[in-house]
Design a protein around this nucleic acid. Structure first.
Length: 347
DNA sequence: AAAACGGGGAG
DNA sequence: CTCCCAGTTTT
């Protein structure tokens, strides 16, 4: 049996029952694929149900607004995915009359749809012979063929895409692609792969040379920047001063408290003489009578200190507004802001 | 070619 | 702590 057949057999006996596998509706598949970009299945699952229920069709999605989409997306990260989804839904509604495209060449033009996602949607919904290359596929191919070319270099990406194309079972591309990814996720895992029960270990270079631990090779490029955010919770206990973030930085278009970014955290005692607070809880440590949260992003470590002010200014900057605590459910908040406000207002 | 973009879970 | 997750876009 060839490689693809082995994996497909394995897949039929071991696959998880995932909701987006029970349909060929390109819209539903698109929904799942965008949500699952750089996101584990367990983390994305509740968001998939949430979006599929709220927007059963691309037409329904196209009728949404950005605030609403971002609020539904809150907590999932990489928020440009949500913003791009709305643009794409609206384009599909207008240009394609609400019929979601299924051809790779059309899909690849859509905002937020790259090579992987276009291959996934076209193969899953219409059996177009396009090989997907996601993190799982990189790993499976790198190990099976013993390829040490970095998977995140442009050269490596090209090589692995070509290999995946060559491996593709053109009789059943959809199942082949699912099998490759499921195999990578469940058996050929990053750590402690289950080589003992692997159906293709006989032909696997990494298994034969005991190289699974260091394959695939990945260039590390991440430079972590430290940033210091001083947030002002200006509130009378019922409403608080907020504004909407712009684009060009993290959390684009989400709602934010007044923010002072400084080279290091402001000292609450010396710099400000504010009503002191007594806050502690999840991810919050008490220091110098103000709350500090360390929030970790891929390229940034945020050190966040919250100050509480009880005097509400009458004159506030343009575009700022007072948000009632009961209206927060309609506002997309960055995770650390949400955690703090949730604690502070005790909901 | 490199950097930016979230948040969470596993080891 | 490090690595990685059904990647894409921007610089």
């Amino acid at each position: 049996m060839d490689f693809s057949t082995e994996l497909i057999n394995w897949y039929h006996n071991n696959k998880r029952d995932l909701p987006w596998r029970n349909t060929t509706d390109a819209y539903i598949i698109w929904l799942s694929e965008i949500i699952l970009q750089q996101t584990r299945v367990e983390q994305g699952m509740p968001y998939f149900y949430r979006f599929a229920e709220r927007y059963p069709t691309v037409t329904a999605f196209a009728a949404a607004n950005e605030d609403e989409v971002l609020r539904l997306w809150q907590g999932l990260g990489y928020y440009s995915r949500g913003r791009n989804m709305l643009k794409t839904a609206q384009l599909v509604q207008e240009k394609y009359n609400g019929v979601f495209p299924v051809k790779y060449d059309e899909l690849i033009k859509l905002k937020g749809v790259g090579e992987y996602t276009a291959a996934a949607i076209s193969s899953f919904s219409a059996n177009e012979p396009r090989a997907v290359v996601d993190g799982n596929v990189y790993r499976v191919l790198a190990r099976y063929f013993g390829i040490d070319e970095p998977i995140n270099s442009p050269k490596g990406k090209k090589i692995f895409q070509q290999m995946a194309n060559q491996m593709l079972n053109k009789e059943q591309p959809a199942v082949h692609n699912q099998a490759m990814m499921e195999f990578g996720a469940m058996l050929c895992k990053p750590k402690n792969p289950a080589c003992g029960i692997c159906p293709v270990r006989i032909g696997c270079v990494a298994f034969k040379t005991n190289a699974t631990a260091w394959l695939p090779v990945k260039l590390k490029t991440v430079k972590i920047r430290k940033r210091f955010f001083n947030y002002m919770l200006i509130s009378d206990g019922q409403k608080m001063l907020m504004n909407k973030r712009g684009e060009g930085d993290i959390w684009a278009n989400m709602y934010d408290l007044p923010l002072i970014e400084t080279p290091s955290l402001l000292d609450p005692v010396e710099v400000l003489h504010l009503p002191q607070m007594n806050v502690f809880g999840r991810n919050i440590t008490l220091k110098d009578n103000s709350a500090i949260i360390k929030h970790i992003l891929t390229h940034q470590h945020l050190f966040i200190r919250f100050f509480v002010l009880k005097d509400l200014p009458e004159e506030i900057p343009v575009n700022w507004f007072y948000a009632d605590v009961n209206d927060l459910e309609n506002l997309a908040l960055p995770k650390p802001i949400f955690i703090f406000i949730k604690y502070f207002f005790n909901f």
